[in-house]
Computed example of a mutant assay.
Amino acid sequence: MNKQLPNGVFPTMITPFTASNEVDYTALEKLVEWYIQHKVDGLFAVCQSSEMFKLSLDERVELARFIMEKAKGRVPVIASGHIADTFEEQVKELKAMCGTGIDALVLITNRLVQQHESDDMFKGNLERLLKHIPEHIPLGFYECPSPYKRVMSPSLLRWCAETGRFFFLKDTSCDMENITEKLEAVQGTGLKIYNANTATLLDSLKLGIAGYSGVMANFHPELYVWLTRNYSDRPVEAKQLSDQLSMASLIEKQLYPVNAKYYQMLEGNFTNNISRTQDYTAFTPTHRLEVEQLQRLSKRLAAQLPDGK
């Protein structure tokens, strides 16, 4: 079985809700189609952008199962969703997620140890956890910023890669030195690293990063797709696009994921921007105007890009 994931763009999917605060599966189906129409290379379902910490286990499982069903094998679907504090509850969560048929199961690095605990403790807990996860399931890691960010050390990542079970890392270090050392550490293994940070993305692609997995792929994934596929052949245009994407990514600091949901309203996919993690009523007319301007800018940039891969 080929457990490798493709290089490229893996959006960290957002979750639409109905007016009664239930998962809106009609809007979710439209969102899956929108990502695929914009030529993403995979989907990262059930992550922090999905508001997984505010979803029940049943909701997380059904979300992953539904996205797998609607993707229909056109792109791989990976998912996380273990949010519990206790080992026993995490095993229950991970086994349930394995049962959805996802293409890879992503472990959250901060769930394996507490903030003050060592890499040796991480290894011990991971070895214990791996005994409960079916060996045929490809695995990955996500340096989720909440409830605290556990950035993996290069040596720990190498150790994990050498188990032969890990094929994905969503890196959130936003640090070129750390990224460079991680890339060197996993050379010769099957583990690929995907950068979540726009400012460092182009430089990291040149060093061998496999792609992008970040929140801005909920706004204009087609621009990240172009960048990841054409940065080498079109270096001048890639640099210009990278600069523009970095400035656009500052909207992450606005009121995410409410603003991303408003963008999806503009795209015709969502009917509202209700969120369980943010107060969507705090989304002001000025916020809306900024997202509308971003949408127009995104479409203009996409139209101006030269033909690529």
Rank of each mutant, 00 (worst) to 15 (best):
N2K: 05
Q4T: 13
L5S: 06
N7R: 15
T12I: 03
T15A: 06
N21E: 15
E22N: 15
V23A: 06
T26V: 14
A27W: 09
E29R: 13
E29Y: 12
E29I: 04
L31C: 03
V32A: 07
V32R: 07
W34V: 01
G42L: 02
L43F: 11
Q48P: 00
S50Q: 00
M52V: 04
E62C: 10
A64Y: 02
R65E: 12
M68N: 10
K72V: 08
V75C: 11
G81L: 09
A84W: 02
T86F: 05
T86Q: 04
Q90T: 03
K95R: 11
G101Q: 11
G101W: 08
I102F: 08
A104S: 05
A104F: 08
V106K: 00
L107V: 02
L112N: 07
V113D: 05
Q114P: 07
D119L: 01
L126C: 10
L130E: 02
L130C: 01
I133V: 03
E135F: 11
E143T: 01
P145A: 00
S146I: 09
K149G: 12
R150M: 04
S155Y: 07
L156P: 04
L157S: 07
A161D: 08
F168K: 01
L169W: 00
T172D: 12
T172E: 12
M176W: 03
I179Y: 08
T180M: 15
K192P: 09
A199M: 12
T200Q: 09
L202P: 11
D203Q: 15
D203G: 13
S204W: 07
K206H: 14
I209S: 04
A217Y: 08
E222M: 10
V225Y: 00
R234W: 15
E237S: 06
E237A: 08
K239V: 10
Q240I: 14
L245T: 12
I251L: 10
K253D: 15
V258F: 04
N259H: 14
Y262C: 04
E267R: 05
E267T: 05
D279K: 13
T281A: 12
A282T: 14
F283R: 11
T284A: 12
P285V: 09
T286P: 10
R288C: 12
E292L: 00
L294Y: 05
L297K: 14
L297G: 11
K299S: 13
R300K: 11
L301N: 02
A302M: 05
D307K: 15
G308Q: 02
